[in-house]
Design a protein around this nucleic acid. Structure first.
Length: 197
DNA sequence: CCGAGGATCATCT
DNA sequence: GATGATCCTCGGT
């Protein structure tokens, strides 16, 4: 509670700039990701992201369009979700120009609304662990893989203005082997909801 | 606190 | 046939 309240500045715009992928990853911090479900709104402030820009060897789009990554080549604001390790889903927001193939991976949220629903979806009670990783947040919000290819809002998933972070940390990305030296991970300094330090 | 190992399967080579 | 934008548990320190 105190973590978001300590940053009182509201986002000036009604939607974030998604034109430049690396900048978008930074810009998305503090925005509220909302899933409007029949049971109610489930939402969290974005506290950690990673950019997967054009020509990035670590990007799913690096070797061109395929069945799996087709959504990455759609308009910015398109949802791209994929299954990893045969069991987890991750959520991306497509960025940049159509046909290029870029996206931002949302890695962690600070729970904001529908926390009881998150706990039910996760089968957990510890608020710290509800949304502290890319697959955990998908499960907490109850997002489905077939949201892939739809635009934000069409899948009842959308962004709302949140707060402007006081401190943004930029580091290398997590869990990848290719282009591991690129500093394309961003997270909010001091947040206790980040996946890893 | 930390590292190792396993779960589990669609996608790509 | 191998891999992977992960997560959880377990054992050691």
């Amino acid at each position: 509670m105190t973590e978001s309240m300590s940053s009182k500045t509201r986002h000036p715009k009604s939607s974030p700039d998604l034109n430049d992928t690396v900048h978008a990853a930074r810009n998305l911090l503090g925005w509220k990701l909302v899933h409007a479900t029949p049971a109610g709104r489930i939402a969290g402030y974005i506290v950690e992201t990673e950019a997967y820009p054009d020509q990035d060897p670590a990007s799913h789009a690096f070797r061109g369009p395929s069945t799996r990554n087709a959504a990455m080549f759609e308009d910015k604001g398109t949802i791209y979700m994929y299954r990893i390790y045969g069991m987890h889903l991750c959520f991306n927001i497509v960025t940049g120009k159509p046909g290029v193939g870029e996206a931002v991976l949302v890695r962690a949220l600070q729970p904001a609304e529908g926390i009881d629903l998150m706990k039910r979806n996760r089968g957990l009670d510890a608020e710290q662990k509800l949304t502290n990783g890319p697959a955990n947040l998908v499960q907490a919000l109850g997002m489905q893989q077939d949201y892939t290819g739809t635009k934000l809002s069409e899948a009842h998933v959308y962004l709302e203005p949140g707060f402007v972070p006081e401190e943004i940390i930029q580091t290398t990305r997590i869990g990848i082997t290719k282009a591991a030296e690129q500093p394309w991970r961003f997270y909010i300094g001091g947040s206790s909801y980040v996946s890893k330090r």
